[in-house]
Simulated assay, not measured.
Amino acid sequence: MRIGVDLGGSKIEIIALGDGGEVLLRERVATPQGDYRGTLNAVAGLVSVAESRVTSLRTCARDGIHPDGACRPAKRNPRQTESGTASVGVGIPGAESLDTGLIKNANSTCLIGQPLKRDLEALLQREVRIANDANCFALSEAADGAGAGARVVFGVILGTGVGGGIVVDGKLLTGANAIAGEWGHNPMPGEYHKDACYCGRKDCIELYLSGPGLAADHRRVTGADFSALDIARHAANGDAACEVTLQRHEARLARALAQVINILDPDVIVLGGGLSNMERLYENVPRLWGEHVFSDRVATKLLKHRHGDSSGVRGAAWLWP
């Protein structure tokens, strides 16, 4: 059994996958806000409950129920570790420094500077694998999602933040600095407003293509305080100002992804996160990005996620072969 944990800023999600990738259990709890120790304990508690519950369900399904209603003791699963526990992978909104082992680049700031891997391994009494949440999303969609069968997959998160992950021949590419795919903190091509990102840089792609970035752009131009969801809904109902805002968003997304294509030349780009549910992106953005790609044709496919908001947590589970 593989266990995946998606450690987000607002929620912690856990999933247990069987040998064939089938979902055995999936649960969510709220993230203890700004509380590192509380976050560790929440993850450990979810793992303990998941192992216990899945073991009981498997035992009852395989061996039946005793006349007194109790399940028989569980038999050892050959996929379990020596201690009899499941493998655990964790997706985080940041990265682990290859130099210090401490968390960096996390928008859940209570994780920054913390030895998350070491602390979780001490609590769970086993090896834990940690990866950026966008990397987990990319791995999930490359393994058995929208990018299954493609040689090079670039997974994109367009949500509260903007992230990316790269999978080549089914293997996650982390890079020499553990930042492969972090396109969200490159400068947005063609924008020179000098707006400051939380990371300390100016005009980051995340400032424009995230959900809050889309809302801020609309507010800056129109004065209307709409959420990204509101903007999409109003545009679909014929609101001209919201339509123009979405057209700006699509043009920016096309320019930003064209840079990725020029460097990585992926077979497939898969979109995830809340903004990925705008169906118009999959037609409009490929129509626009050709102008910026250094090729006479663009064979790269832009696809919607297959596993929805389960992709990140599934990818965390797939960190183990």
Score class of each variant (00 low, 15 high):
Gly223Trp: 00
Leu253Phe: 05
Asp217Glu: 14
His218Cys: 14
Ala254Thr: 04
Arg252Val: 03
Leu257Glu: 00
Ala256Glu: 12
Arg219Asn: 12
Glu243Ala: 14
Asp230Gly: 14
Tyr198Leu: 11
His234Cys: 11
Asp203Ile: 00
Glu191Pro: 02
Gly213Lys: 00
Ala215Thr: 12
Gly190Asn: 09
Gly213Ser: 06
Glu191Phe: 09
Thr222Asn: 05
Thr222Gly: 06
Ala251Ile: 07
His234Tyr: 15
Ala228Ser: 15
Ala228Lys: 05
Ile205His: 02
Leu253Gly: 08
Val221Ile: 13
Leu214Tyr: 08
Ser227Cys: 06
Tyr192Phe: 14
Glu243Cys: 05
Tyr208Gln: 01
His249Lys: 09
Gln259Ser: 11
Ala258Trp: 05
Ala235Gln: 03
Leu214Met: 13
Leu209Lys: 03
Ser227Phe: 09
Gly190Ser: 10
Arg252Glu: 02
Ala258Pro: 06
Ala215Phe: 01
Gly211Tyr: 04
His218Asp: 01
Asp230Cys: 10
Val260Phe: 01
Tyr192Asn: 14
Glu191Gly: 02
Cys242Ala: 15
His234Asn: 08
Ala254Asn: 08
Ala224Cys: 13
His193Trp: 10
Ala241Asn: 11
Phe226Lys: 09
His193Thr: 15
Thr245Lys: 00
Lys194Leu: 04
Ala251Gln: 14
Asp230Arg: 10
Asp230Trp: 05
Tyr208Leu: 02
Leu214Ala: 13
Ser227Ala: 07
Leu246Ser: 08
Asp225Ile: 02
His218Trp: 00
Glu191Arg: 12
Ala240Arg: 08
Pro189Cys: 01
